[in-house]
Design a binder for these strands. Structure first.
Lengths: 223, 223
DNA sequence: ATCTTGCATTTTGTATACAACATGCCAAAG
DNA sequence: CTTTGGCATGTTGTATACAAAATGCAAGAT
């Protein structure tokens, strides 16, 4: 966290391609279950098949694609069970982040988080869902940063990225949204009190509520 | 868990290469920090550079290699901090596995685990360290299987694989080993009582003890 | 003597040709 | 009419050639 990174970000071609594909998947341009034709895609992206294949491998590692031998890559189609399992793990990790953060949080950190909580409530008040999600994410990132465990942050990020293939925005109806904001307030209180166990419980329950919301948006899909 | 998979395992060349490299890394033939020359390695393994590169990507995804742009791949060199962070996350995941398992365990499962516990104690009694580790791993796998969350199992496996690059076997002196076996007995008790919270605590502490042992074997290495 | 600068060599990155495999169709047999 | 075998076509897997980048060394300048 100390020192500055002045190196210019040199992204390799596979990385750029992977990022591009990731966006296409998250935005839904590439639907879950869709098969990705290498030649076709490589022409569209303007790269040859080799770097594209490396991009496939990266995305497969993140769980956004599955690769079948001799049958290429396709966008993952997560079942409700998959989502449930992923959330179960993410809740546990988020709880750990809370515990760690409670043990290490400084007053300066708390001030930052209080400011973010303010942003969150304002976004809520004006029903600005995109803004709400942005702040929400910022709070989460900050918490993870305070927790100070890069492996934890990385693991969480990977799991989360996988779920984004679903792109469940929307679906925060009034009651649920109000409750979520209130939960955030409780969480901030537990953190200020340095009560790791309480924060952990709150986070786990918070994630559980989120899971329910996501499952509802998924509706009665397959499996 | 129902039904049999009769499909013959068709491993692709990159998979085979990755598996081979994984073994070389774990066994220490490829030391941490070592740079992997593509041409050289591809000749030694008898594959061309393309599948080898895909193998690199897979291992990098598992965290066994790091890939630097235009500078190839090298075996990760984990710092003590890295190990600490990884164990922190693994302990949390293992705890979750315990909680879930306690909620779903059947009497038949318990019988299996009791048998394994017997194996463990026998291996301990005759100071059979490799055997002990094997049974230890079997118990862990069984627990994860009972927990019934593939995402959890997968995440744990990945983290664990990364640590194996260190190949810390050995280093279980008398006292620690005795204590580990006793802990296993307690864990089995908590599972039999379906006490998820207790099992969770035991597992987290168990992993914490393991971390200490690992850190000792790492000695006063760099960073 | 040390530091820079350019060149030679090595190594990685990308494109592409060719081989292996999968898939769908059609015809022929039951 | 259904099923099976073979073939044609398309798609992925692998090898290799070429391009771009990095590294090490040596010669010259300060």
């Amino acid at each position: 966290m100390d020192g500055f990174d002045i190196s210019i970000a040199r992204s390799t071609l596979p990385q750029v391609a992977a990022e591009r594909l990731r966006t296409l998947i998250i935005e839904g341009a590439l639907a879950p279950g869709a098969r990705l034709n290498e030649r076709e895609l490589s022409e569209q992206l303007g790269v040859s098949r080799t770097p594209l294949r490396e991009a496939f491998r990266m995305l497969a590692a993140d769980g956004l694609l599955v690769q079948l031998p001799n049958r290429g890559a396709q966008v993952v189609a997560l079942s409700r069970e998959d989502v449930r399992h992923a959330f179960e793990v993410m809740a546990s990790l988020e709880g750990l982040a809370g515990e760690l953060a409670a043990a290490r949080v400084t007053d300066a950190d708390l001030d930052d988080l209080k400011a973010l909580q303010g942003d969150l409530e304002r976004a809520h008040k004006r029903r600005d869902l995109p803004g709400y999600y942005r702040v929400n994410r910022a709070i989460h990132d900050r918490l993870n940063q305070i927790a100070g465990n890069p492996v934890l942050a990385q693991t969480y990020r990977t799991l989360n990225a996988r779920l984004h293939a679903l792109r469940f925005r929307s679906n925060l109806n009034g009651a649920k949204w109000d409750r979520a904001v209130a939960e955030h307030r409780s969480m901030l209180g537990a953190l200020a009190a340095r009560d790791g166990a309480a924060l952990r419980d709150l986070l786990v329950r918070h994630l559980h509520a989120k899971l329910q919301a996501v499952l509802e948006t998924m509706g009665q899909d397959k499996e």
